[in-house]
Design a protein around this nucleic acid. Structure first.
Length: 118
DNA sequence: ATTCTGACAGCAA
DNA sequence: TTTGCTGCCAGAA
């Protein structure tokens, strides 16, 4: 009796949960990229999926430091998905990052690769 | 079940 | 160097 799909949230949570878990492990003052997380999850190339998962992170009670995840160029591609367009930048600056033109200057220096650190 | 879309990444012009 | 197109995986309609 395989009665799945009755609760789709449960099945999807399986994959999303991994993204959340990794994202929550990002230390304060550190930053990573969608591709790095995707690669750590074993689904390299599905970086877009990571962003999709983080989009869902808004409706869960836990705090997910999604602002610490940017694209490979250090660009704040997901800033528009936060409350205000400047919220993501504000959060990063609050952690000591320097954001210029929607780009994290300290991206390479503060880069945190889960595949390497974990 | 099929099709479209997406908070990316990589490669070609 | 910058701009554009394709590939990727999974979820939502």
């Amino acid at each position: 009796m395989i009665r799945r799909s009755s609760v789709p949230e449960r099945d999807s949570k399986d994959f999303f949960s991994r993204v959340y878990e990794v994202t929550k492990l990002i230390p304060f003052g550190r930053i990573t990229s969608y591709g790095a997380i995707a690669r750590y999850l074993g689904t390299a190339g599905s970086a877009r999926m990571v962003g999709w998962a983080l989009n869902s992170s808004h409706h869960i009670p836990e705090f997910i430091p999604a602002h610490r995840v940017v694209n490979r160029n250090g660009l704040l591609t997901g800033k528009h998905h936060f409350g205000n367009s400047s919220t993501m930048q504000q959060l990063l600056q609050n952690e000591g990052f320097t954001v210029e033109d929607d780009r994290v200057i300290e991206f390479h220096e503060r880069f945190w690769d889960p595949a390497t650190e974990l």
